[in-house]
Every structure is written in C-alpha cells, then in structure tokens.
C-alpha cells in the first residue's frame, strides 16, 4: 500500500468524489471508506498491480475507485439503480473497472461475466452477509483472500455487536474459510468490523 507519511493514498485520476490530493496522489479517507479504515486499524491485504478483484456492494464507486488504482481489474457488483448511475460514471473513466448490475446474493446470474479472482471484497450490509460471501467464494482462487465488512447492526439488532462478530467468524470457518485477521473499525466506523480470510489450497499463478 502506498503511504505518504501516515496518509494512505492511491495513484490515479482524482476528482471522483472531490477527494483531497496529496503530492499528486488521491488521499484515501478511512472515515469515508471501510477498506481504508481496515488499512489504518489493522493489516488488511496488500493490493498489487496484478490482482483481480471481485467487489460486492460497490455502491457509488468511492472505495472501488481507489481499489482500481492499485489492481489490474475490479469486477464491481451493485444492485440498486441510483448508486449504479454513479458507479457507471466512475467506470467510464477507469478502464480496469467492470461494472455489473446484479444482486450479490445471486452469483449464478453474473458468473458468466466474472473470471477467477485473487481478492473477494464484500460490503453489502445484509443479514446473511457471511452466506453471501461463502456463495461468492466460487470465484476466489485457492490461496486468495476474502475481506468481509461486517455491519453488525444490519445482521441482528437484538444481538450485541460482539456476538454478531463471533457468530460471523464461526460461520466463515464453517464455510471452509480460514480467518486470518479480524478487527473493529472504530474509531472510523461505529459497530463495523472487518474480517480477512483466506481460501485454503495451493496458490496458483495467473494464466
């Protein structure tokens, strides 16, 4: 990850959401982006130039645009028409961004579009977040990483955030993923946690 001093940045064309620029690079604000918060609060997954990423819950393309600055290609899945309009606008100017309008809980509908990926990132704020991630692991190469952004308040409001957090980690383990890092995103995002997993198996290189 590129840092200027303590500030996380990405190299790319600015002005996506009037983000601050620093020495020609785009400042990646942890208060706006949960992925940026993960890089501040924990270790995260190093984004590299040869990476292929499947991004579920792309929304307005704020975080997606930063990810696209780092990696080879991002398949960005979003379901709602309103944010999709913004995402298309971002994708028009970033040639390594493939915008897909589909429901992240129905991978069979976009499977004919997406190749195998090295990183699966999910931020969909649904009650069955872990199940959606597990279903999409079909796209993830063995040895690849999956990052789940857990909005505990969307999963079950009756449970405490900690309970939801532990239950989700258990669910992911049951789904055959190895949890390598789990951190709360405070103070950047309240009641949000990031869970980083790997898919067991032999690491294969790109064809």
């Amino acid at each position: 990850m590129i840092r200027i001093g303590d500030v996380l940045v990405s190299q790319g064309e600015g002005g996506v959401y009037s983000e601050r620029m620093l020495a020609g690079a785009r400042v990646w604000d942890p208060f706006r982006s949960k992925l940026a918060a993960l890089y501040y609060a924990g270790k995260g997954v190093e984004l590299t130039a040869d990476m292929r990423v499947l991004y579920l819950g792309a929304a307005n393309g704020t975080t997606v645009s930063h990810v696209a600055d780092y990696v080879e290609v991002v398949y960005a899945v979003e379901f709602a028409p309103r944010p999709m309009q913004d995402l298309l606008e971002v994708a028009r100017r970033r040639k390594n961004l493939v915008p897909i309008m589909a429901d992240a809980s129905r991978p069979e509908q976009y499977a004919p579009l997406v190749e195998g990926v090295d990183l699966l990132y999910q931020d969909v704020a649904q009650p069955d977040q872990a199940a959606i991630l597990a279903r999409n692991c079909a796209f993830l190469r063995p040895g690849g990483h999956a990052i789940l952004m857990l909005k505990t308040r969307s999963v079950d409001i009756r449970k405490t955030p900690e309970e939801v957090f532990h239950d989700t980690i258990a669910d992911l383990a049951t789904a055959g993923l190895e949890v390598v890092e789990s951190v709360w995103l405070s103070p950047y995002h309240k009641d949000h946690a990031a869970i980083v997993c790997t898919k067991p198996g032999r690491v294969m290189s790109h064809e």
Binding site: V73, P81, M84, Q85, L88, A91, R92, K95, N96, V98, P99, I100, M101, L113
Partner: peptide, 17 residues
C-alpha cells in the same frame, strides 16, 4: 477482452436502470 466485456456491462446496466 475488457473492452468488449465493459461494453456489454455498460449496455446491460443502462438497460436495467
């Protein structure tokens, strides 16, 4: 490959919207 795939995805998304 990406250019053709992106053309398709834009067309599909715009149609859906």
């Amino acid at each position: 490959y990406f250019s053709a795939l992106r053309d398709l995805c834009f067309a599909a998304a715009e149609q859906d919207i």
